[in-house]
């Protein structure tokens, strides 16, 4: 019986063309990363040929637009970290407690209401948070602390904190849910209360997942742009006082690009040097977060 089971050239060609095209689309994402790195690195290298990298990293004055220029990035980095730190103080406890509430306490119906609302909170554009900070949070702050600047780090911290609550709560909730039922049952079987089961068994078991969500949320806060540009001001200021006006790295990048900076000038390159710093900081945090998350998954799979 002669049955032809051999490969047909035409079909093989068609299939492999499709396969190649699909691969090209996936590989394209790698090009995007290469593009980011090349673009940032090229202009940054040019920047550092004019500005010493030591001055850049250790200088305490950021005055690129002044007659006598200073390129110490510390005020911008401290501005970013001040806002992100403040946001973390708000979002981390609230986020983890909401996660515990959603995974351990809330019934299905409450979850069905709360979770979409948190998703909406995460989906509100950052420019809207900026408006909210400026017209609602800042007046409130000035009521309590009359000396507060119109543009201040605290208002930005608070709205950025609100913005990253969903990141912390949803990723932490996933981590809490991944803790096997049997662990909870074992603790209940020993006569533990819900509080003890939650805080002494479930949270410790999910700790690496929770930490990963914290790091990711802080990384988002550092990269946040519009809310801080609107609410925190544009004054590079090496300070720890959240009631003062400051400038973050992201706000500087926006400010520098608003004016029509000509290509090839030092001012244009400043933008890339700051962008590179921001990129490396957030990338570092994201990688650490992914690494912690991967270790968490290994524990339970």
């Amino acid at each position: 019986m002669g049955v032809d089971l051999t490969r047909k050239g035409s079909r093989k060609l068609g299939e492999s063309l499709i396969g190649t095209a699909l691969f090209a689309c996936a590989a394209f994402s790698t090009l995007v990363t290469v593009g980011v790195v090349v673009v940032l690195a090229r202009e940054s290298v040019a920047f550092f040929s004019e500005v010493s990298i030591v001055d850049f990293l250790t200088g305490t004055r950021w005055e690129p637009m002044f007659q006598e220029q200073h390129f110490g990035i510390l005020p911008l980095v401290s501005g970013s970290l001040l806002v992100a730190g403040g946001a973390g103080l708000i979002a981390l406890p609230i986020g983890i407690l909401s996660a515990i509430f959603l995974s351990e306490y809330a019934g299905a119906r409450l979850q069905a209401v709360l979770k979409p609302l948190l998703e909406i909170l995460a989906g509100v554009p950052t420019v809207v948070y900026g408006y909210f900070a400026l017209t609602f949070i800042t007046p409130l702050l000035r009521l309590v602390f009359p000396g507060t600047d119109i543009f201040n780090a605290a208002a930005a911290s608070i709205v950025v904190g609100l913005m990253i609550i969903p990141t912390v709560s949803s990723l932490s909730e996933d981590a809490l849910r991944a803790v096997p039922r049997s662990l909870r049952e074992a603790a209940y079987g020993l006569g533990a209360t819900k509080l003890e089961v939650s805080t002494r068994v479930v949270v410790p078991a999910a700790l690496s997942g929770i930490i990963a969500s914290f790091i990711l949320a802080i990384s988002r806060a550092v990269g946040e742009t519009m809310a801080v540009t609107i609410a925190a001001g544009n004054l590079p200021n090496l300070t720890l006082n959240p009631l003062e006006s400051i400038q973050t790295m992201t706000a500087f990048i926006v400010q520098a690009s608003m004016g029509d900076t000509p290509q090839g000038t030092l001012a244009y390159r400043t933008l890339f040097a700051v962008g590179m710093t921001l990129f490396l900081m957030t990338l570092g945090m994201n990688i650490v977060s992914q690494w912690v998350m991967a270790r968490f998954r290994e524990e339970y799979q």
Partner: peptide, 12 residues
């Protein structure tokens, strides 16, 4: 016919 010969198309 050897089903695992290199010329054989598993789809076929």
């Amino acid at each position: 016919q050897d089903l695992y010969a290199p010329t054989i198309d598993p789809v076929e």
